[in-house]
Structures are given as structure tokens and as C-alpha cells.
Amino acid sequence: MATTPNPPATAKINRVGLSVIDYRGSKSTLCAGCGHNAISERIIEAFYEMGIEPERVAKLSGIGCSSKTPAYFLGRAHSFNGVHGRMPAVATGAAVANRNLLYIGVSGDGDTASIGLGQFAHLMRRNVPMIYIVENNGVYGLTKGQFSATADIGSRLRTGVVNELPAIDICALAIELGATFVARSFSGDKKQLLALLKAAIAHNGTVLLDVISPCVTFNDHEGSTKSYKFVKDHEEPLQEIGFVPSFEEIDIEYETGNGVEVSLHDGSKMRLAKLEEDFDPTDRIAALTRLAHAREKNEVLTGLFYVNPAQPNFTDLLNLVDEPLGTLPQEAVRPPRSVLDRIMEEFR
């Protein structure tokens, strides 16, 4: 018996016939233990479990450690690693040119909250249909450990430098500016992050996912507010998040208890077991208030802060044809000779 090889285990496949290997990218070159690697893993799982063909996905990023990660997941997806802080513009252009793809942008706290703050603001405001992930560690890694604009007041670098400026709350800003799905998670919270990512894929509009992702090299020490230990000790999840994709037919009666159900654009459902009795994630003002309180109490508040599945997105507002603009044939884009003749007549 010992000489007979075991029959190979049938690889698990998802609803489009792909295995999780089809969702992998190249090997990460980030530091061992970097929170960003954990996030890449969750992205791979989310797209695999949702059964999205990688060819239907476009990945975009700016510059920084976080922005390198699109190379490490979904190797068969289309990719654009642009310039520092300008991923939102590239994503906007692509989303308008081909509205049939699923867009995921990966940015960092420097790329988003400093050099790219203007583009970030306008992307949120336009509600461009895409998932915008901020891999937030409060520090510039590639340039070796300077504070970013999401570093908390009083947080200390290993060199002893203390941050004296207030942190920019990316989530509060996104809600204020018009994003229609705003959540925060933690790279170490596998379950919550995966559920949020799957819901993000189902949402039709801008998803802003702020993921606290500790930098093991430059910002994981005593005195840092973005260290594993600090985040683990101070994390305050708003809800326990369950996700039921639209393609799962069997709908077992769900024990709602003090929970709430949110239907997303594609028919998927988020089931939120409330840990805070009064919090309603469809109430913008309440979300902003709760975030302000969290800042005062030094809580690392996580969970779904705000969702509005009904808001028309940017490509809806542009009233575009169904076919991608990028591949329209000549007949659709060059008006006939008679039109030029008519226009010339107007100038006589």
C-alpha cells in the first residue's frame, strides 16, 4: 500500500471553474510579516470566492509599499502602476473608457492622504465605481520611516520623533466627500476584512476601505499607534459582518437578533450583527459623529461605517452607452460626411 501513490486531491474550484492558484500574483518583495501581504491574501480569497474571472479585473496603484502589491495578487488581471498619488485619475479614466471591468485600486496613507489627497477627494466626490483600498500604516516605508498624515498625535517614531499634527481620518473624509461604501478594517482581522472585501466587490460605486496595516520595519514599536499590539488592544469593531453573495441560492433563515441586513447592488446581502445598539450604517451624519467620538477616545474603530447602495455612480451620470467607449467602432464615433457639411454651412 505504501508504494501506491495517493490519488491527487481534486483542486477546489469556484463557480467560474478556477482554482485559487489562478488568483495569485508574483511573489511579494515586501518585508516578511508586512500587513500588506495579509491584505493581498484576503484580496485573492475574496475574488476567488466571489468567482470573478481575473481578466475582468483591473488593478491600479500609485507609489509606495502598498502600491507595489497589485503585482502580488491576480496575476491575470490588467494592471497599471502609475505615479505617486495619481491612481484615482487613472482609475477614473479607465472606468469611464471600459465600464464593464471591476476596478480595484491600492494606495497607502502617503499616496492617499498627502500627495494624492486632491485626487482622492475628487474620486470620492464622483463616486467612481471601484474599490479603493488604503493600506494604512502611518508611515512612509520605501523612504525609510517618515511620518505620514494618518499618524496619530503623540505617536512616536523609533528615532524618538513625536508626531505633533492631527491625523487625517480617511474614512470621515470619504463619507463627507460622497463615497458610498466606507469601512475600516485591520490586516490582522481576517474574517472582517474578507467579508468587507466581498461586499466591496458587490457594491456599485466608490468603496473606500481603510485597512490598518502595521509596518513591521518602521512603525511596530512601543509608542506607535499603528503597531500590531496597539491596534489589537484598541480595536473596536462596530459589527460582526456576514456576507451572502447573490449567487448563493440557499438562504437559511438568519438569526437577525439585533442585526441589520443591507442589500447591495448585485443582490448580495451584508448581514451586520450589531455590537453597538444604535449605530445605523445608512446614516451619514451618525457615521461622522461616531468617527469623531472614536478619535477622541483613541479607539481604532473598525467595521462598516456608511453604505448607500442606491446612489448613481459616475458612469451612470455620464449616461454612457453599454459597450465600452474604448472599443466602439468607427461608425459609432466618426460622424458622417453630411454632419461636417452641415457644420461647415453654419460657419459660412
Binding site: 487613472v90 479614466g93 474604448g326
Partner: peptide, 10 residues
């Protein structure tokens, strides 16, 4: 940036 993103997408 929008132009390059759109051109990239065709």
C-alpha cells in the same frame, strides 16, 4: 491621468 487611464483602456 484620466487621459492615460482611458487610453490604456482603449
Amino acid at each position: 491621468g484620466i487621459v492615460l487611464g482611458a487610453s490604456w483602456a482603449g
